Simulated scan of single mutants.
Amino acid sequence: MITTLLALALQAVTIPDAPQQPVLEPEERLEARLQALQSAEEGEAADIAQEVLALWADADSATIDLLMERGEEALIAGEADLAARMFDHVNRLEPDFAEGWLRSAQIAQARQDWEFSLQALNRALTLEPRRFDAFYLLGRTLEQANRPEAALEAYEQALEIYPAYELAEQNAARIRARLRGRTL
């Protein structure tokens, strides 16, 4: 009896259809989020940037995702050699995956291997020229190589893509001030 009453009640209730949002392919979503990043306010921009980074980190391959995860875990555990091996495997298996090259560049920078860091960053930026995080890391690497003008250019590239990128802005401002001091 209760089931019959419930069935009748459910038939009488009409739930309006929710408007259907189009399902975007990952590249379309990435493009939309990068466009949103251009005009986003600082707080919102950080959330959008994290979403963009997550989209870039998705390899669409269980093997690559596992290697990346193990590499990240090794970095957190302070095992840079193991992390470097994991990211090297990623780069060999999926040479067109910019995230693997970026992670390799980060490790190379930490080891002060500027040459390999620059090569890996060049590869990452060739594969994905919208990588604001790669431009930021390039700026840091160029600063370490005592090339402030080139570092400033890299930070400015990052800011063109992600105008509210606080770390890039701070570093760019510091270099601008230092370069102005040279000309006085």
Rank of each mutant, 00 (worst) to 15 (best):
R85L: 10
A59T: 02
F116V: 00
E128G: 10
A12K: 07
E149P: 14
N122W: 05
F132R: 06
A98K: 15
E99V: 14
E25W: 08
A49V: 04
R182A: 13
Q11I: 14
P129D: 08
L121V: 06
L30R: 08
T4Q: 02
L30G: 12
W114Q: 03
L75Q: 11
Q11C: 13
A83K: 08
A9K: 05
T4M: 06
E41D: 06
D65S: 08
R130A: 13
Q144H: 01
S117P: 00
L121W: 00
N146R: 05
A77S: 00
E51A: 15
L24D: 09
D17P: 01
E156V: 09
E99D: 13
A151K: 05
E153P: 06
S104G: 06
E166I: 14
Q157F: 00
A54W: 15
I48V: 13
D113C: 03
E115H: 02
A18R: 01
L82F: 04
L55C: 07
L75R: 10
A158E: 12
L118E: 01
A7M: 07
Y155W: 03
Q109S: 06
P26C: 11
D58G: 09
S117E: 04
L5E: 00
E72C: 08
V90A: 08
D60N: 02
R140A: 10
Q109E: 10
R182Y: 12
F116N: 02
S104P: 01
L67K: 01
A18N: 04
R182M: 14
Q109N: 06
E51T: 15
L34F: 04
R130E: 13
E73V: 12
S61M: 02
T63D: 13
A18Y: 01
A108W: 00
E41K: 07
A57F: 00
R178A: 13
L152E: 14
T4R: 02
R29K: 11
W114K: 05
A173E: 13
F87L: 11
Q112V: 03
T63S: 10
A98S: 15
V23K: 15
G43E: 15
G100L: 05
L102G: 10
T126M: 06
E156R: 10
R92A: 05
G139A: 12
Q50S: 08
H89C: 11
F135S: 09
E94T: 12
A74I: 06
I2Y: 00
E115S: 04
T126S: 11
R140D: 04
L93Y: 09
A158C: 14
D60W: 01
R103M: 13
W56N: 14
F135C: 11
Q106T: 03
Q157S: 02
A83M: 07
A9N: 06
T14I: 09
R131V: 07
E99P: 12
A80S: 12
G78V: 03
